[in-house]
Structures are given as C-alpha cells and as structure tokens.
Design a protein around this nucleic acid. Structure first.
Lengths: 187, 187
DNA sequence: TTATACATTTACCGTTCGGTACACCTTTGT
DNA sequence: ACAAAGGTGTACCGAACGGTAAATGTATAA
C-alpha cells in the first residue's frame, strides 16, 4: 500500500470529481479510470467520503499554491498583490478545463451544516481570507479583515459567473470594482 | 392530468431539490413525498431532467419575484434600489432554509456547457443583470451594464460565502463594497 | 522450502437508480 | 347500459450504486 499509489489515486479522483461532480461519479468509474481494483481502492480509502475529503485537501493545496505563487510573480508591493489577485483569476478562468470553484461545487452537493465536506470547503475559504488579510495588513489597510472579505466576495462572485456565462469580462469587472476599494482602504 | 397537480409536484420537487441537491434526490423519494404514483409522475414529466428544468423555472420566477418586490418596497429612487439589493440579500441569508443559490448548485451538478440545465441557470443570471442594468440606467450610470455586472458579482460572492460560512457579515460587506461603486458610477 | 504477512483480484452483496409494461380503475359520451 | 379513453397503482426492468468476503498472488523471513 504505497503512499505514492495513494497519491496517484487522489490526483485522478480530483480530476474526475472536478470534471463530473461528486454524486455523479461512482466508485466503479474511479476504479476503472485508475486501473486499480475496487478492494485496493477501499484499502486506501475507507469510504467514498474519505476519498472526496482527500481530493478536496489536495485541491486546496494545489489551488492555493497556484494563486499565491502567481500573485507573487505578478506583483511586488502588498497593494499591487491584492490587485493582481484578479489577474490571476482571469488566467484561471481562461484555462480550458475551468469549471468553477470545486469547494462551491462540494458545498452544493453536501449542503448539510457541520459535516466534514462542508467544513473542509469552509476552511479553504478561511485560508484565502487569512492570506488576503495579511496582504491587506501589509498594505496598511485600516480594517484588513474587511478588505480581505470584500476581495474574496468579488473573487467568488466572478468565479461563479465565469463558470455560468463564460470567462468573458468577469475577472476584469471584479478587478475594476476592487481597485477603488483597495485604494480607499489603504489611504 | 390537471395543471394544478403538476404545479403541486413542481413546488414539492423544488423544495426537495433545493434542500438535498439534484443527483442525491431520487425519483422514488419525490414520488413518496408527493404521494403520487411513479407512472403519474412520468406522465407529467418525461424524464427527471424535465422535472429539474420545471423546478428551476419555478425557482427563477419565485426568486425574482421576491427580490424585485422587496427592493421596490425598501427603496424609492433607482439609486436607492440598487443599494437596497443588499438589504434584501441579508433578509434572504437569514431565512432558516437558506442553502445558497439554486442555480449555482445546478451548474455545479450539471457543468457541461450548452446543456439545458446550465443554460437555464445562465438565463436566470441574465435576467438579474437586465433588471439591475435597467435600474442603473434609470439612476444615470455612465455604463449601466458594467455597474449591473459588478453588483451581480458582489451578490453571487456574498451568497456563496453566506452559505459556506453562515449569514454573518457577507451581505453587509457586499453592501459596503457596492455603495462607492454605485455612487461613483452615477456621478 | 515453507510459513507468514500483506497486497490484489474476482465475484458478489443488498439497495437504489431512472424508467416502463400492464392491469385496474374512473370518468365521459352515447 | 356500455364501450372507449385516459389517469392511476403495482410490480417490475436492467444498470449502477457503495461496499465486502473469499480466493489468489507475491514478497520476505526463518
């Protein structure tokens, strides 16, 4: 039961769950696509929910890596980084396999409060807030938490609409809405 | 096959789909909860997808009625109405059965482009944009479409986060982000 | 070489899925 | 009174669901 095999399973599961959804992807499909047997799959993951949680944790890590790394590459000052968030968002929307936010999808399919999947999704958003709040603090914002929350609201709204209506203009519109907020918050 | 019976079925289906999701709600559950027989159900709706589409159309109508009516009740001038959008949003978030936007949920479970369900969800958002753009035009905005889009982005973001993290502060934060945008756009 | 331990496969479990064939009403027109 | 028409319920379809028991490798240690 090698750790790398498990990793491979989670990567593949993440890809398929993100593309097709959670309920509509059966364990038989995952087993077939990964080439493993069903019993082995259930040795690595006790239940389907365990596999979903592992996939969400991987997604959390990969997504934050991508966003944070690109922001750091695109901008130098904290204030510029806050704004660059929306340029990274535009890059994400344009990717050919973009299908919206995986955690929003998960919260739609498992909406019951205080369940592991919804909690994992909520925690992902907390991590984003924390990162943005740190940037806002470094940028000298009066109320870093508030500014971070507003930026996250714009990010989530743009993401939802980009998935529903196509990538078009939403990252740009969100950016144009964010800039005056950021400038006003940092004197 | 009375029209009122069909209406009753759609209402009940909407309630259950919104609470539990689409894939995780079986036709057997719907049949049991409505007290009708399966054959009769399939006389009214050829497939499960037809029933989902009917539920989404009803949701579209009910949701827009609620939002637009409350906005008109809360504010008089077009500019005030744009702002009041976020007070109505706060009311929605506080409702005990609030579970986020049904069309976002639908787009998460049926993400394939150019399919009836995704198209219906996209059209719902178009209707909201159109209404907001009309208000923005009446309020004298330079670019009504842009302002409407930005307000919708804030609405969608606040909705997603309110579902994930609880109603708390998101309507208020979105409102505070929207006000300067609205004021700046209308001179 | 053989016993042990563990990973893997095959074959299957009971349940639920979306959907349907068909017998059984009940109504309506004549 | 009676037949045609159409809505209704029962009982069922094959497939897919999440999950498991038992057999079959296969590598290591004695």
């Amino acid at each position: 039961m090698s750790a790398s095999k498990r990793d491979e399973l989670v990567h593949k599961a993440l890809e398929i769950f993100y593309r097709d959804g959670f309920h509509s992807t059966g364990m038989d499909t995952l087993v077939k696509e990964t080439g493993i047997s069903k019993t082995s799959m259930y040795k690595h993951f006790r239940t389907k929910e365990d596999l979903i949680l592992a996939a969400l944790r991987l997604r959390d890590e990969k997504f934050r890596n991508f966003i944070f790394r690109r922001i750091e590459e695109l901008a130098k000052t904290p204030r510029e980084k806050l704004i660059a968030t929306f340029d990274v968002l535009a890059e994400w929307f344009e990717m050919k396999d973009f299908r919206g936010c995986m955690f929003v999808k998960a919260s739609g399919e498992y909406p019951e409060h205080n369940t592991p999947i919804l909690n994992t999704a909520a925690e992902h958003k907390n991590q984003l807030i924390r990162y943005l709040a740190d940037l806002a603090r470094d940028a000298g914002a009066q109320d870093p938490e508030n500014l971070a929350t507003q930026i996250l609201i714009l990010k989530e709204g743009a993401t939802v609409l980009a998935h529903l209506q196509g990538p078009g203009k939403f990252a740009k519109q969100a950016k144009e809405a964010a800039i005056p907020l950021i400038l006003a918050a940092c004197d």
